[in-house]
Design a protein around this nucleic acid. Structure first.
Length: 180
DNA sequence: GTCCGGATCTTT
DNA sequence: AAGATCCGGACA
Protein backbone atom coordinates (compact mmCIF):
# COMPACT_ATOMS: atom_id res chain seq x y z
CA UNK A 1 0.00 0.00 0.00
CA UNK A 2 1.26 3.41 -0.93
CA UNK A 3 -0.34 6.63 0.29
CA UNK A 4 0.59 10.02 -1.07
CA UNK A 5 -1.66 12.75 0.07
CA UNK A 6 -5.18 11.55 -0.71
CA UNK A 7 -4.16 8.99 -3.26
CA UNK A 8 -3.83 5.35 -2.33
CA UNK A 9 -2.25 2.74 -4.54
CA UNK A 10 -2.74 -0.90 -3.75
CA UNK A 11 -1.01 -3.91 -5.22
CA UNK A 12 -0.77 -7.60 -4.47
CA UNK A 13 2.76 -8.96 -4.23
CA UNK A 14 3.08 -11.77 -6.76
CA UNK A 15 6.84 -12.17 -7.15
CA UNK A 16 9.81 -11.80 -4.81
CA UNK A 17 13.45 -12.71 -4.40
CA UNK A 18 15.36 -13.51 -1.21
CA UNK A 19 18.73 -12.02 -0.37
CA UNK A 20 20.21 -13.71 2.61
CA UNK A 21 22.96 -12.29 4.68
CA UNK A 22 26.67 -11.53 4.42
CA UNK A 23 27.61 -14.79 2.73
CA UNK A 24 25.14 -14.51 -0.14
CA UNK A 25 27.29 -12.89 -2.80
CA UNK A 26 24.22 -11.52 -4.55
CA UNK A 27 23.21 -9.64 -1.41
CA UNK A 28 24.48 -6.09 -1.26
CA UNK A 29 25.42 -6.61 2.37
CA UNK A 30 27.95 -9.27 1.38
CA UNK A 31 30.40 -6.43 0.87
CA UNK A 32 30.04 -5.31 4.42
CA UNK A 33 28.02 -2.80 6.31
CA UNK A 34 27.89 0.51 4.45
CA UNK A 35 25.68 3.56 4.43
CA UNK A 36 23.60 2.13 1.62
CA UNK A 37 22.99 -1.24 3.23
CA UNK A 38 22.61 0.06 6.74
CA UNK A 39 18.87 -0.51 6.99
CA UNK A 40 19.32 -4.16 6.09
CA UNK A 41 21.15 -4.55 9.38
CA UNK A 42 18.29 -3.00 11.29
CA UNK A 43 15.04 -4.56 12.48
CA UNK A 44 12.82 -6.48 10.10
CA UNK A 45 9.80 -4.93 8.48
CA UNK A 46 11.47 -1.83 7.14
CA UNK A 47 12.03 -0.81 3.52
CA UNK A 48 15.42 -1.06 1.87
CA UNK A 49 15.31 1.10 -1.26
CA UNK A 50 18.26 1.58 -3.58
CA UNK A 51 19.01 2.73 -7.10
CA UNK A 52 20.07 0.25 -9.78
CA UNK A 53 21.60 0.99 -13.15
CA UNK A 54 21.53 4.64 -12.36
CA UNK A 55 17.84 4.91 -13.09
CA UNK A 56 15.57 2.45 -11.36
CA UNK A 57 14.72 2.07 -7.72
CA UNK A 58 14.21 -1.31 -6.12
CA UNK A 59 12.04 -1.96 -3.07
CA UNK A 60 13.01 -4.58 -0.51
CA UNK A 61 11.61 -5.70 2.82
CA UNK A 62 14.18 -6.19 5.54
CA UNK A 63 13.64 -9.61 7.05
CA UNK A 64 16.43 -10.89 9.27
CA UNK A 65 16.90 -10.50 12.98
CA UNK A 66 18.52 -7.24 13.92
CA UNK A 67 22.18 -7.28 12.99
CA UNK A 68 21.71 -9.92 10.27
CA UNK A 69 21.39 -8.33 6.83
CA UNK A 70 18.70 -10.03 4.79
CA UNK A 71 15.89 -8.74 2.63
CA UNK A 72 13.21 -9.71 0.18
CA UNK A 73 13.10 -7.86 -3.13
CA UNK A 74 9.58 -7.15 -4.33
CA UNK A 75 9.68 -7.88 -8.04
CA UNK A 76 6.09 -7.62 -9.17
CA UNK A 77 2.67 -6.45 -8.06
CA UNK A 78 -0.75 -7.30 -9.36
CA UNK A 79 -2.87 -4.20 -9.43
CA UNK A 80 -6.41 -3.52 -8.49
CA UNK A 81 -8.08 -3.26 -11.91
CA UNK A 82 -9.45 0.19 -11.13
CA UNK A 83 -5.91 1.48 -10.82
CA UNK A 84 -5.13 0.79 -14.45
CA UNK A 85 -6.70 2.08 -17.61
CA UNK A 86 -7.09 -1.28 -19.17
CA UNK A 87 -6.84 -4.73 -17.67
CA UNK A 88 -3.89 -5.68 -19.82
CA UNK A 89 -1.93 -2.55 -19.11
CA UNK A 90 -2.67 -2.70 -15.42
CA UNK A 91 -1.28 -6.21 -15.30
CA UNK A 92 2.12 -5.05 -16.48
CA UNK A 93 2.38 -1.60 -14.96
CA UNK A 94 4.02 -3.00 -11.85
CA UNK A 95 5.62 -6.14 -13.31
CA UNK A 96 9.31 -5.76 -12.60
CA UNK A 97 11.18 -4.22 -9.68
CA UNK A 98 11.85 -0.93 -11.43
CA UNK A 99 8.36 -0.64 -12.80
CA UNK A 100 6.65 -1.18 -9.50
CA UNK A 101 8.64 1.49 -7.69
CA UNK A 102 7.81 3.92 -10.46
CA UNK A 103 4.15 3.00 -10.25
CA UNK A 104 4.16 3.34 -6.48
CA UNK A 105 6.23 6.48 -6.51
CA UNK A 106 8.82 4.90 -4.25
CA UNK A 107 12.38 6.23 -4.20
CA UNK A 108 15.16 6.71 -1.73
CA UNK A 109 13.04 8.97 0.43
CA UNK A 110 11.22 5.78 1.44
CA UNK A 111 14.40 3.99 2.45
CA UNK A 112 13.95 2.80 6.01
CA UNK A 113 10.17 3.31 6.03
CA UNK A 114 8.33 1.16 8.53
CA UNK A 115 6.31 -1.22 6.39
CA UNK A 116 4.23 -2.32 9.35
CA UNK A 117 2.88 1.16 9.96
CA UNK A 118 -0.52 1.38 8.33
CA UNK A 119 -0.69 5.08 8.95
CA UNK A 120 2.59 5.69 7.14
CA UNK A 121 3.28 6.41 3.46
CA UNK A 122 4.16 2.83 2.55
CA UNK A 123 3.16 -0.43 4.15
CA UNK A 124 2.32 -4.09 3.62
CA UNK A 125 -0.67 -5.88 5.04
CA UNK A 126 -2.04 -9.38 4.79
CA UNK A 127 -5.44 -8.40 3.54
CA UNK A 128 -5.38 -9.88 0.07
CA UNK A 129 -6.94 -13.05 -1.26
CA UNK A 130 -5.94 -16.37 0.35
CA UNK A 131 -2.38 -17.43 -0.38
CA UNK A 132 -2.24 -19.37 -3.62
CA UNK A 133 -1.20 -22.99 -3.48
CA UNK A 134 0.94 -23.00 -6.58
CA UNK A 135 4.24 -21.20 -6.05
CA UNK A 136 6.95 -21.46 -8.65
CA UNK A 137 10.63 -20.96 -7.94
CA UNK A 138 13.68 -20.18 -10.00
CA UNK A 139 17.11 -18.62 -9.89
CA UNK A 140 17.27 -14.93 -9.09
CA UNK A 141 17.44 -12.50 -11.97
CA UNK A 142 20.58 -10.63 -12.89
CA UNK A 143 22.92 -12.10 -10.32
CA UNK A 144 25.02 -14.39 -12.46
CA UNK A 145 28.13 -12.86 -10.94
CA UNK A 146 27.31 -14.41 -7.58
CA UNK A 147 28.92 -17.78 -8.24
CA UNK A 148 27.15 -20.71 -6.64
CA UNK A 149 24.71 -18.34 -4.98
CA UNK A 150 23.31 -17.51 -8.38
CA UNK A 151 22.03 -21.06 -8.66
CA UNK A 152 19.89 -20.90 -5.54
CA UNK A 153 16.20 -21.04 -6.33
CA UNK A 154 15.40 -17.93 -4.37
CA UNK A 155 12.98 -16.31 -6.73
CA UNK A 156 9.35 -17.05 -5.96
CA UNK A 157 6.19 -16.29 -7.82
CA UNK A 158 2.53 -17.16 -8.05
CA UNK A 159 2.33 -19.81 -10.75
CA UNK A 160 1.05 -18.51 -14.04
CA UNK A 161 0.25 -15.05 -12.80
CA UNK A 162 0.08 -12.51 -15.65
CA UNK A 163 2.02 -9.88 -13.69
CA UNK A 164 5.21 -11.91 -13.28
CA UNK A 165 8.18 -9.93 -14.51
CA UNK A 166 10.18 -12.64 -16.26
CA UNK A 167 8.82 -16.07 -17.11
CA UNK A 168 9.79 -18.93 -14.84
CA UNK A 169 11.36 -21.83 -16.64
CA UNK A 170 8.81 -24.58 -16.89
CA UNK A 171 9.37 -28.04 -15.59
CA UNK A 172 10.95 -30.38 -18.07
CA UNK A 173 8.38 -31.90 -20.29
CA UNK A 174 9.70 -33.86 -23.20
CA UNK A 175 12.04 -31.59 -25.07
CA UNK A 176 12.16 -28.97 -22.36
CA UNK A 177 12.12 -25.34 -23.43
CA UNK A 178 15.45 -23.68 -23.25
CA UNK A 179 14.36 -20.34 -21.98
CA UNK A 180 15.15 -17.73 -24.49
C1' DG B 1 39.95 11.34 -6.60
C1' DT B 2 39.10 7.96 -10.24
C1' DC B 3 37.17 3.90 -12.06
C1' DC B 4 34.02 0.12 -12.83
C1' DG B 5 29.86 -2.18 -13.21
C1' DG B 6 25.16 -3.06 -11.81
C1' DA B 7 18.88 -7.12 -7.91
C1' DT B 8 16.40 -2.66 -15.12
C1' DC B 9 13.53 -1.04 -18.80
C1' DT B 10 12.80 0.89 -23.30
C1' DT B 11 13.67 1.28 -27.86
C1' DT B 12 15.85 -0.34 -32.18
C1' DA C 1 20.84 -5.97 -29.38
C1' DA C 2 22.14 -1.98 -27.05
C1' DG C 3 21.57 2.57 -24.84
C1' DA C 4 20.12 5.30 -20.99
C1' DT C 5 22.38 7.11 -16.69
C1' DC C 6 24.65 7.55 -11.93
C1' DC C 7 25.80 5.89 -7.45
C1' DG C 8 28.24 2.73 -4.33
C1' DG C 9 32.17 0.40 -3.49
C1' DA C 10 37.03 -0.57 -4.43
C1' DC C 11 41.28 1.02 -5.07
C1' DA C 12 44.99 4.72 -4.86
Amino acid sequence: MRRRGRSLRVGLIVEVEAYDGPRDLACHASRGRTARTEVMFGPAGHAYVYLVYGMHHCLNVVTGPEGYPAAVLIRALALDPQDGDEAGQAARAAAGPGRLTRWLGVARAQNGADLCDRSGPLWIEASGPPAPKAIVTGPRIGVDYAGRWAARLWRFGIAGHPALSVPFARKKRGAGPARG
